[in-house]
Structure formats: C-alpha cells, structure tokens
Design a protein around this nucleic acid. Structure first.
Lengths: 241, 241
DNA sequence: CATTATCTCGAACGTCGTTCCATAGCTGGT
DNA sequence: ACCAGCTATGGAACGACGTTCGAGATAATG
C-alpha cells in the first residue's frame, strides 16, 4: 500500500496509475473478476480477502498492494459489472424501445449480480464503466430528441426505477428461498403465518385473495416501465424538446 | 438462544412469542431503537453487538437471548423504521397527491436512515410495519378507484422508484462528502479528475457543461415522480378501473 | 419450598480485515 | 557486470468482530 499519499483518502478512480519495474504477476484485472466470481456465488459475506487470495494462488497480504482495502475492491467490482449492460442505438429500434432496453438492461445486471443491489446505493457511481454507461445513455436520449436537463433527469428516472425494481424483486426472492431448508418449507410457514395475521391487513388480504402468489416479478417490472414510458411520452408531447 | 427450534431457520416474524417467568429487564423494544440510533450515527459497519450492549448497559451475550443474530437485528431495525412513514387519506388531498405523498414518504425515510438503503434490497419485506405500510398503501389506492392487480402493481412501482431514487441520491452524497477530509477537497479532486477524462464521455461532457453541479437531488426525484404519476393517470383514463 | 422455565453474561473460539516487515525480483544507470 | 532503487510478495501477528458455551441469578408455578 503506497501511492495513496498524493490524493489521500479518495476513491479508487481518483488515483494515478502505477507502473515501471517490479514483478507483475498479480494484477487488478485478475483480482476483480475473481472477486466477482466469488460474489456471484457466495455474496458479499462470502467474499473474504483470504479466500480470494487462495483462489488466485497468492498470499493474502499481496492483495493489499493492488487494492487499498475490501471496500475499494467492492467498488471496483461494482463498477466492473456495469460494463455488461448493452444499450441499442435509437435509430435501430425507436426511442421508446431503446429507453426501455436501458432500464431492462440495468435490471438484468442487478438480478444477475444480486450483491450489487446492496452496494449501488452506498458507493459513489464515478467509476469508468458506470460513467461510460451514463454517457451512452445520455447519447441515446439526446439522439431520441431530448435535450438539456431532460436527458439527465430521464436517465436518472429510468435507472432509479430499474434498480429499485431489482431490489424489490431480489428481496422478495430472499423471503421465498431461505438457504438451509426445503424450498416449500419456508413458503409453507410463511403461508401459515400469513393466515394468522391476515385479518390485521384487510386491504392486503382482499387483494391477496384474488392473487395468492404475490411477488415482484418481471410482469410487475414491465407494467411499471410502461407507465413510466407513457409518462415520459406525454411530457415529451406536451413541452417540445 | 432458544425458542428457535419450532420454526427452525425462519425469519424473525415467523417465530412465536415467549413469556412467563424470569427476569425481564432487557427487551426487544429497547434493543431495536438503540440499534437504530447507532445505525443512524455510524452506519451498518458502526453497529457491533458489543457497542450496542454497552449502550444498553448489558452484557454482549445477553442480546442473543432476544435476537438470534446480527442479521435478524438488522431485519428488525429495517422493519421498525418503515413505521415512520405517514400516508394521508385519499379523501383529504385527492389520489394524485396521496400517491405522491406515499413515494415522498418512502424517500424521506430512506434518506433519514441511509443504512436501510443497502438492506431493503436484501431482507424480505415481511415485517409487521412493512406489511402495515403496504396495507395502508393498498387501501389508499383502492379508495382512489384502482382495483385488482393495479393496486399492487402501482404500489410496487411507486415504492421501487422511491427506493431507487433514494439509493441514487445517497450514493451521490457518498461521492460528494467523504469522511476525514475537508468538504471541498474531495469535490476539487473529483473536478480535476473529471476534467482529465471529460473527452472520453462526450455526451456527459456536453450536458455537464450547461449543468456543472450534477447530482440526484429532490428536483430530480420530483421530476421523475411527476412523470410516473402522469403515466398512471393516462393508464387510468385509458382502461377504466 | 422445590421445581422449572426465563434471562444474564464472563470467557472463550474461530474468522475476519488489515498492517508490519523481511525478502525477492526486475530495471536502469554506470 | 554490478549495484542501487523501485516494485511486488507473503508469513506472521494484531485487534475487532459475531457467536457459543455454560454456570449462575431471578421470578413464576404447583
């Protein structure tokens, strides 16, 4: 751990590069994907510096030459997965489909890497891949005819909804499938508990009686997305720009 | 730690109550608010079972009689703060204002207790306060004239957006004010870093040139909320219900 | 009063993130 | 060819953490 003194206590991204001399066997480009692999399998709690180093065949302390600490490693991993999102060009599909694909892409990534859901609301989104995503989204919205502050606000609206929807969907999944027991067992005890308290929640009970298996799923996401796109469309038609 | 065997490895909420006999000095009703106080001050990492017990004047191990583990304590705290959200009746203000107040209330709570942002996407939302909130929201939407699946979908849309917006706003704040350095110092180094990479992000650069201080703030939230409410309104007018 | 269940908590265990520092390898200057 | 100086490694240790154990204290029950 050196090379940190010039911009002390900043984010990873604000730090200058190092190079020249030495023995370059371990690199950040190896560490981050390995960390993501562990995160996808075991979650944030399953990632320890020791297991990560073991997976790379390196000593634990060696990691600290390449990343300042675990928090910074998580920041790097969080930024890295945001590079997986692909956004179609507006010309190919029309603005509504392109904008919808942006939101759907964000949701897909979040559900594929659930550990990032708890991280995205905490770590600042200033990594290169996150900025690239924002830049592409801004270009797409500009090409769709939006201008000025509308570009950033609509982009913010879509990504906020996509992340919130992924969070809701993921938390519902956590309740449905607890580890260490049969799949149906938890669901059964939830069902029993629900019946015992249903009378305390009359409105929920009424709705749930006509729709028993109620979770936040893809249909829920797509319904909300359509409402948002409708709202953007009427705003776009009302105030030109 | 007992009384867990009957419904082994379930959520807190599925566990029966205990009582009768013994020395009831420490209660869950004391523990959870104390934990929330620490969480508000120091975040999730600042909450340790030892400091919490010390704050309560109790031994560390005593906590484990009332909560199974730290995860369950966080679940209890997460549910508890959701009881702070107040929702106005539809008759008083009209459905659009009432629905908007629901989303704004969720955002307020999340920004007042930022630690819950990283938790809400991970812990299942089946606590009593969370269900009460859902129930009240469902009743509000039903009173507003929505029916059937629309009630749950619109409620899900609003809370997903509110949480996502709070997450985005909070993560922007994390980037702006890093602890342990002067407020302007981080902002200055971000600014310098931005200038050095601006040409890589032409669309962002163009937009940022007309709007230098760009973060997710209340105006961004309200703009998106208005678009969502517009979208719900046109859907409501189109398909009766 | 004896029994039984409830509740407290000092002490200990294993794991974690992190640091220290001795050491190894590469590069450039002479 | 050689050494100086940087880059990089990693064994060992530290302190803090979540959690468990089990002995003890307290109050209701029969």
């Amino acid at each position: 751990m050196a090379a940190k003194d010039e911009t002390s206590a900043g984010s990873v991204w604000l730090r200058p590069q190092r190079s020249r001399g030495g023995r370059p066997t371990l690199t950040t480009q190896q560490i981050v994907p390995a960390a993501i692999e562990i995160l996808d399998t075991d979650g944030v709690e399953g990632l320890s510096m020791r297991t990560l180093a073991a997976k790379l065949g390196a000593g634990t302390a060696s990691l600290y030459w390449h990343v300042a600490n675990k928090d910074e490693l998580l920041e790097l991993a969080l930024d890295d997965v945001q590079g997986e999102i692909a956004i179609p060009a507006v010309g190919e599909v029309g603005w509504r489909a392109a904008v919808g694909a942006l939101a759907a892409g964000i949701r897909d990534i979040a559900l594929r890497h659930p550990w990032m859901i708890g991280l995205a609301g905490v770590k600042p989104p200033i990594g290169p891949k996150a900025m690239r995503l924002n830049d592409v989204a801004a270009g797409m919205l500009a090409a769709a005819g939006f201008s000025g502050a509308a570009v950033s606000r609509i982009s913010a609206l879509l990504s906020a909804y996509a992340m919130g929807a992924a969070a809701a969907e993921n938390s519902c999944r956590q309740g449905a499938a607890q580890p260490g027991q049969a799949a149906g067992q938890m669901r059964a005890s939830i069902e029993a508990h629900w019946r015992s308290v249903a009378e305390q929640y009359p409105n929920l009970a009424h709705w749930r009686s006509e729709n028993p298996s109620a979770t936040f799923d893809q249909d829920t996401f797509l319904f909300g997305l359509d409402r948002i796109l409708d709202g953007i469309a009427v705003w776009r038609d009302r105030a030109p720009g």
